[in-house]
Amino acid sequence: MKPFIVLIAVFFISILSIRLLTQKHDLLLSARIGMCAMLFFTAIGHFAFTKGMTMMIPSGIPLKTEIVYLTGVLEILLGIGLIIPGFKVYSAWVLILFFIVLLPANINAAVKHIDYQKGTFDGNGLAYLWFRVPLQIVFIFWTYLSSLKNW
């Protein structure tokens, strides 16, 4: 829920800021700035809650800690890429693929009741997926729509 709040709050702040600075509306740029901020916010979790994040990765996948750090860096780079006009479309497509690839880790975490912030097995469980899966779909569509030339 926190990432969604960051996304929406920064989106609206960006709309107002861009309007004040340029006297124009740029919803697409505001949407990309919101997604960039959300990605920065979630990337922090990769470094602050590494143990819990590694627990989310399905068993059998090696180098879990390295994957957590790499995906944190990737979120930062893709967020920046969304803001740079020449990279926004490429970054958006990689980010959409990234969101799809992350879904099994979120499902695994829910099935195992993982609380990634505490690194324990007393998380929300399967009920979390009723929120997380639709949210992941929102993130995918948000990223796609914000990378279009005209909306």
Rank of each mutant, 00 (worst) to 15 (best):
D115K: 00
I33W: 12
N106E: 00
T120F: 05
E66K: 10
Q23K: 15
F121A: 08
F131R: 03
I84F: 08
F12P: 06
R132W: 13
L102A: 02
I114Y: 04
V68P: 04
F41W: 02
F4K: 13
M53P: 12
Q136F: 01
N150F: 15
M56Q: 05
E75Y: 13
L70D: 02
V68L: 07
F40T: 12
T50C: 14
A92H: 03
G123M: 08
D115Q: 00
H46M: 02
G72Y: 06
D26V: 02
Y90E: 01
N108W: 00
L103T: 09
L16V: 13
K2Y: 04
A48T: 13
F4R: 13
L28E: 07
L77V: 15
H25V: 05
S146V: 05
K149N: 15
L129T: 08
S91P: 07
V73K: 12
N108Y: 02
A127Y: 15
M1F: 05
I80D: 09
R19V: 13
A92G: 05
P134G: 07
F121C: 07
K118A: 01
R19M: 15
N124E: 11
E75F: 10
I84V: 08
V73T: 14
T54L: 13
S146A: 14
L63E: 10
H113D: 13
S146Y: 08
T120D: 01
K118M: 03
G86W: 11
I57E: 11
L21T: 12
I76F: 06
I8K: 12
P104V: 04
K118V: 00
G52Q: 06
V89A: 00
V94K: 03
I5F: 14
A110P: 00
I61Q: 04
K51D: 11
Q136N: 05
F47C: 09
C36A: 14
I100S: 00
M56Y: 02
F12H: 10
L27Y: 14
Y116P: 01
E66D: 10
L145H: 02
T42H: 04
N150Y: 14
M1W: 04
Y128K: 11
T22L: 02
F131N: 04
T42D: 05
E66V: 09
S30Y: 08
F12G: 12
M35V: 06
T71Q: 09
F131Y: 07
Q23M: 14
A37V: 12
M35Y: 05
A37H: 08
S59C: 13
G125T: 08
T120E: 05
M55D: 11
D26L: 05
I13W: 03
R32T: 01
M38H: 01
I137S: 01
L63N: 09
I114F: 07
K2G: 01
I5Y: 14
F47Y: 10
